[in-house]
Write a protein that binds this DNA or RNA. Structure first.
Length: 596
RNA sequence: GGCCCCGUAGUUCAAUGGAUAGAAUAGAAGUUUCCUAAACUUUAGAUACAAGUUCGAUUCUUGUCGGGGCUACCA
């Protein structure tokens, strides 16, 4: 907050002078004055009334008087109960505005010379991306941007799950029922084509299980003995042995999936610096198990399986190597952590993964700590809640998923419909119009998913969830488009914002002051968002700023202003808002149009 | 059963332990000779329940009730 440091010092000085006692920094709490009271910033006096030996009211009065006398920035004060509301002069705000207006990078922090890795997306190559992946990707991409803005050197990575039983399932179904179908021959996008066979596997498999149960087997036996399952296991073994035919099929099918994913990522507007594939990392980590045994971090059971004992930390025993010497997920994740550190040497590492893996990651981090890994302290699981549908949980095998490609297409169509209804884009070329629909549709979708705190699970109702009015992406985009129109007009009329004009302004309209105060908060918001790994902080800030500007827009006229200095100030001021909106939305991965 | 997360207006979301709990949407009523009405203004409506800590609790603690997740030698 503006002046907070000076104020804290002055409060300490004043307290000593008036009451003769020392205050600790943590007793001095400032907050923003609530709208219904007069003032800009508020000191809560309760924490030190005891020391003052006066009533809260009197204490606040005395401190207020002292501050007003000793700080020219404070032009007035009032006391409500134990709250001392301080009014900061318009000139101070204007000066602050000048500073932030001049600074292209206002809000962004200087480089920290520290590397952080953000892993996100992490899809399986057996089905297309769905709504849950959208939340993950938008979150990961945005958190990476926010950390960059906070001064970190960020490496974005994607760990693709491209092997394993589930991958073999779609391979097997394709081999049996695919009849050489290809994305080209069928006109189906690669990842969707593979997804089709993953579903097909499940259908056929269920039939087999049902038949076996009818023959008198138990459910459990049937699931293990169904021919398709036996063949899948066989195929996995062949793949691991490197059987050329199996590997060729795997490569062909994964290739199709990657083509599909690339297209989806492009539409989403996310990217990565590095792609790790599990087929290249799944054997890692065994040496770390050996190391752990030597360091007595792990112990071996009689059957030869290896475990970590985390009971003392409130967790359970966890298997890290099977009795037959093969690895489990934990083994491979330990190995991959080492590999990543070797590759990039990041002191911090963020895993953007759903909250169903909370337990897995708390175990992983603890094990790495026990193994003495230097990077273990900097690991963080950015755990986010599931996206539920009105009908309940999404299940890909049962076809109750909201597909990412479909949803985005749907959004573009809705945006187009809305835009055409309003009829404000005469003169747009076909291409410009299409681009606008994408900007708006994607803006609405991204904003919808990012405005909610990550850890909360959220409900998505395809019919109602995504609006274009109110607390939405398009609301902010609209505000930007309006400002752009003002700046165009200013340019036409030959008004350009000048420093001299800023010097000459003495007073601010109430709505102008509110906006300047918000602009001034930007760096603090980036800090908060970065430290909490929470794009929702930025999303809500951008909304507040746009909303406040819209109030100004309705209350104050720009081009009818008689005082040309005030007019020029309002142009500069609008420009600063537009710039800040672009920065904030940029952090969320949302574009802002010039017209809409 | 054990462990973890979440319960705020009809609905979707906010609120470093601080004032009369903010928005949006849906509802009601207004605003366009003037910079984009995808906007603005007004209005009504909520902390699941019960104790405790505190000058002060939506926030911290405990319990109850509701929702979700994890609890595989699966990935």
């Amino acid at each position: 907050m503006l002046l907070e440091k000076q104020l804290t010092e002055k409060v300490k000085d004043g307290f000593k002078e008036i009451f003769g006692g020392e205050l600790q920094d943590n007793q001095i709490q400032f907050q923003k004055t609530r709208k219904e009271f007069e003032g800009d910033c508020t000191l809560v006096v309760f924490p030190f009334v005891k020391q003052a030996k006066k009533s809260p009211q009197q204490t606040a009065e005395l401190v207020g008087q002292y501050l007003q006398e000793h700080m020219p920035e404070i032009t007035a004060f009032n006391v409500v109960k134990g709250f001392l509301n301080l009014v900061i002069g318009d000139k101070v705000w204007l000066k602050q505005f000048k500073t932030l207006y001049r600074d292209e990078h206002f809000g962004f922090f200087p480089a920290k010379d520290q590397k952080v890795m953000v892993e996100y997306s992490s899809p399986n190559t057996n089905k297309p991306l769905h709504l849950g992946h959208l939340r993950n990707n938008f979150l990961g991409f945005s958190v990476a941007n926010i950390l960059k803005a906070y001064g970190y050197d960020v490496v974005k990575v994607n760990l693709v799950n491209d092997r394993g039983v589930h991958i073999c399932k779609s391979m097997l179904a394709y081999q049996k029922f695919g009849q050489e179908e290809t994305p080209k021959s069928s006109g189906i996008k690669g990842d969707h084509l593979i997804g089709k066979y993953y579903v097909r596997f499940d259908q056929e498999y269920k039939k087999e299980v049902k038949a076996l149960v009818a023959e008198g087997k138990t459910e459990e036996e049937a699931k293990k003995q169904a021919p398709l399952m036996v063949e899948t296991q066989e195929m996995l073994k062949n793949w691991e042995k490197g059987d050329p035919e199996t590997v060729a099929l795997w490569e062909k099918m994964n290739g199709w999936v990657y083509e599909g994913f690339d297209e989806t990522y492009r539409t989403m507007g996310v990217d990565f610096d590095k792609i790790y594939k599990e087929s290249e990392t799944y054997l890692l980590g065994k040496d770390m198990v050996e190391e752990g045994l030597q360091k007595e971090v792990f112990y071996k059971k009689e059957d030869g399986s290896v475990w970590g004992d985390l009971v003392s930390e409130g967790l359970d025993n966890k298997l890290v190597l099977r009795a037959d010497g093969t690895s489990v997920y934990m083994t491979q994740d330990m190995g991959t952590a080492d590999l990543k550190y070797k590759d990039y040497g990041c002191e911090k590492s963020i895993y953007v993964v759903g909250n169903e893996q909370d337990y897995h990651f708390s175990v992983l981090f603890k094990l790495l700590k026990r193994l003495g890994r230097p990077y273990a302290e900097g690991m963080y699981h950015l755990s986010y809640g599931m996206v539920d549908l009105p009908t309940g949980k999404m299940k890909s095998r049962e076809g109750t998923v909201v597909d990412a490609d479909d949803l985005m297409k749907e959004m573009f169509k809705t945006a187009e419909l809305h835009t055409k209804e309003l009829g404000k884009i005469e003169g747009f070329s076909q291409e410009e119009a299409q681009k606008l629909y994408k900007t708006l549709g994607l803006g609405a979708l991204k904003y919808f998913l990012l405005k909610v705190e990550p850890k909360k699970r959220m409900l998505f109702d395809p019919k109602e969830s995504i609006e274009f009015q109110g607390h939405t992406g398009p609301f902010i985009q609209y505000t930007h488009a309006r400002i752009s129109a003002i700046l165009r007009k200013a340019h036409q009329l030959g008004y350009d914002p000048r420093e001299e004009s800023l010097e000459k302004i003495e007073h601010l309209h109430a709505s102008e002051k509110s906006v300047v105060r918000l602009l001034n908060d930007f760096p603090e918001k980036i800090k908060e968002a970065a430290e909490g790994y929470s794009p929702s902080v930025i999303a809500n800030y951008a909304y507040d700023l746009a909303k406040e500007y819209n109030s100004f827009y309705a209350a104050v006229s720009i081009f009818n202003e008689e005082n040309k200095d005030a007019l020029r100030f309002r142009i500069a001021f609008s420009e600063a808002v537009a710039k800040t909106l672009r920065k904030t939305m940029g952090l969320l991965g949302i574009d802002l149009p010039e017209r809409m």
